[in-house]
């Protein structure tokens, strides 16, 4: 199983560990993630306006490279997944947009939405299968009560992202069960943590992330997992009540017994 892989800016820096846990886990599961060459930052936020071209070019280049490698494009970071998948949808459905975009592409790189964009969770769910994953768990996280934090970017807009039911998602809960732990459902798991306001209006980020953590604590969660570095930072640093927040790949690596390998640099 070979995929083109788009790590994104933060997975190379502050969230390097998200990347390392994922790569070690993928290896243990027989998934080959081949990094897109010379990828550029996706911008972290999809601009919804009809007239933005430049902010979407980095995504298109990565998508075209994956197409040329003959692979689906896998992302780990929720924000990258959101931006690249939505740009891909534009490339597929908006002729005016893709015509303008292709003016910026190398002549032999013209792109029309051919690539399939996947989140790593989809690879686990739809390619490996959670039942299969469960069999490969050597260190089940039995007894741990884990709240899945989806946030916004994995799920919305549901018509484009197509990852799960945007109002009652299940993929992370199924993941938690597969690694032997117990998922905790709570109301704010798909509400915004206020991450984009971290710099600009910190009080909103504090208020939102606190609401998320309070909601999770009230339903008995002992820790949270997320796929997004900004959500993780916000929930761990900005929220008033304290709760441990992990990348889902960290618990995956732990369950698969490759956590130390990952931490020691493969």
């Amino acid at each position: 199983m070979k995929y083109s892989y788009y790590p994104g800016c933060t997975l190379r820096t502050k969230a390097e560990i998200l990347n390392r846990y994922a790569l070690a886990s993928a290896k243990a599961l027989g998934i080959e993630l081949e990094e897109v060459e010379n990828w550029q930052c996706c911008g972290g936020m999809y601009t919804a306006s009809t007239d933005e071209i430049a902010t979407k070019l980095a995504s298109v280049r990565a998508l075209a490279q994956a197409r040329d490698a003959g692979c689906d494009l896998v992302t780990l970071c929720s924000a990258c997944f959101n931006v690249i998948k939505r740009v891909n949808e534009d490339a597929r459905t908006n002729e005016n947009f893709i015509t303008k975009v292709n003016n910026y592409m190398a002549p032999d790189m013209e792109y029309h939405g051919e690539t399939n964009v996947l989140h790593f969770l989809e690879v686990l769910r739809d390619v490996i299968g959670f039942d299969e994953l469960k069999k490969k768990v050597v260190n089940p996280l039995t007894g741990r009560k884990i709240g899945a934090y989806y946030g916004c970017l994995l799920l919305r807009p549901g018509e484009v992202m197509q990852l799960d039911d945007p109002e009652n998602p299940k993929v992370l809960e199924e993941f938690i069960r597969a690694i032997g732990a117990t998922p905790v459902l709570y109301g704010q798991r798909n509400e915004c943590c206020g991450g984009y306001q971290t710099l600009n209006e910190k009080s909103i980020a504090v208020q939102r992330s606190s609401a998320v953590v309070e909601s999770a604590l009230s339903q008995g969660a002992e820790c949270l997992i997320t796929a997004c570095p900004l959500c993780r930072y916000n929930l761990a640093v900005n929220a008033a009540p304290q709760i441990p927040v992990y990348y889902f790949t960290e618990l995956l690596a732990e369950a698969l017994g490759v956590k130390e390998v990952a931490e020691n640099g493969n």
Binding site: L185, Y186, Q188, Q219
Partner: peptide, 11 residues
């Protein structure tokens, strides 16, 4: 906009 499970009630 949203209904959530609260503590012994719906929010």
């Amino acid at each position: 906009g949203k209904v959530e499970q609260g503590d012994g009630c719906l929010k």
